[in-house]
């Protein structure tokens, strides 16, 4: 029964046409108990509200004011190699971070008079790039805050929420391929911002494929920290190319990371742990971070405790394997 209910809650979010919804609801009502049906009805109603009226949800619906994960269940895996059909910015200057971090960009324009102007200039240049030459303004770069941390495959966003409090002045973004899960993280962040005014303004979530589009979002040397927590293990050898850590992808991570930036990986699968470690070891632009430094690092303990996946492993008292490396300058 439990299993079945999960399935139906997924269905509810995927079908949009009303009659399909009603047909399903009728079928369910015939099959499920009264209590279960009440649950489903709740789900369907909540879904309708969710997108439009954040504040109502924040007050009612759920006591905590946070979106409920059960209504955002998605398949555990998504094919990272398939063609994507979501919009992706053409290059980093086309990313609209203002939308993601309104508080930060408001500050920038409020404090510095030129700030807004420089931003406008950049926008104008982008427009002109359609039919003419562009001249990037270095001024705008200085004034506009930039995303410095990226959590690749952020899942339900547990790490982002914890990190937000630890580093309140760093912008950080979670990247998630599964639409519904990224939707959940966005709702969660929104609810947190409403509930704790002034906090959680520095985190956001993107629905994107990090394997394909990282350079579309970040410039060379932009990121200070990258997190890869409990990635999909892809056991079959045929599927190893789908693993998020590989020689070729590390080249891309090295490109978007600042010299001295740190890459954090953790997994509960021993085989994958060894794979990530050996790949990082083999890459000439990364070196392991010493144990002493790890003890000082506030992020390290969050790796296994902050995320939902990490908590699950801890509950089952499973073992975790981490590999933490620093981006170094090229020797050549």
């Amino acid at each position: 029964m439990q299993h079945r209910r999960k399935k139906y809650s997924t269905v509810f979010h995927e079908e949009t046409e009303k009659d399909v919804l009603f047909a399903r609801a009728r079928k369910i009502s015939a099959q499920l108990s009264q209590k279960a049906m009440a649950d489903q009805g709740n789900g369907a109603r909540e879904k309708g509200k969710k997108r439009t009226e954040h504040s109502t949800i924040a007050q009612g619906g759920d006591q905590k004011g946070l979106p409920r994960k059960r209504f955002y269940r998605a398949r555990a895996h998504s094919n990272p190699l398939s063609d994507s059909h979501f919009p992706v910015p053409n290059n980093p200057c086309e990313c609209d971070w203002k939308e993601h971090f309104p508080a930060f960009f408001k500050d920038a324009t409020g404090e510095v008079e030129n700030g807004s102007c420089a931003t406008e200039n950049m926008k104008a240049e982008n427009r002109s790039s359609e039919n003419g030459a562009i001249v990037p303004s270095s001024q705008a770069e200085k004034l506009e805050p930039k995303v410095r941390f990226a959590d690749v495959g952020c899942g339900f966003g547990g790490l982002l929420v914890k990190l937000s409090v630890l580093f309140p002045d760093k912008l950080m973004v979670g990247m998630e391929l599964r639409d519904k899960v990224s939707e959940y993280v966005k709702e969660r962040i929104h609810a947190l911002r409403v509930k704790h005014p002034g906090q959680y303004e520095n985190i956001s979530c993107l629905r994107t494929n990090a394997m394909k589009y990282l350079p579309n979002y970040f410039e060379k040397g932009q990121l200070e920290k990258m997190f890869f927590l409990f990635p999909d293990p892809h056991f079959k050898e045929k599927n190893h190319r789908r693993r998020i850590i590989s020689q070729t992808l590390l080249a891309e991570y090295a490109y978007i990371m600042a010299i001295g930036g740190i890459i954090y990986t953790i997994t509960d699968v021993e085989e994958l742990g060894e794979w990530m470690k050996s790949n990082l070891d083999a890459h000439p632009l990364f070196e392991p971070v010493s144990e002493d430094e790890l003890d000082q690092d506030r992020c390290v303990e969050l790796l296994s405790s902050a995320t939902e996946e990490g908590q699950k492993v801890a509950r089952n008292s499973g073992e975790t394997f981490r590999a933490i490396y620093r981006r170094i300058e090229s020797g050549a």
Binding site: N90, N91, P92, S129, P215, N216, K220, Q247, L250, A251, E252, A254, Y255, H283, P284, L285, S330, A332
Partner: peptide, 13 residues
């Protein structure tokens, strides 16, 4: 191998 990426030219649509 060639592990170091120098730049990306992004803009084509």
């Amino acid at each position: 191998g060639a592990p170091e990426i120098w730049s990306y030219c992004l803009g084509h649509t």
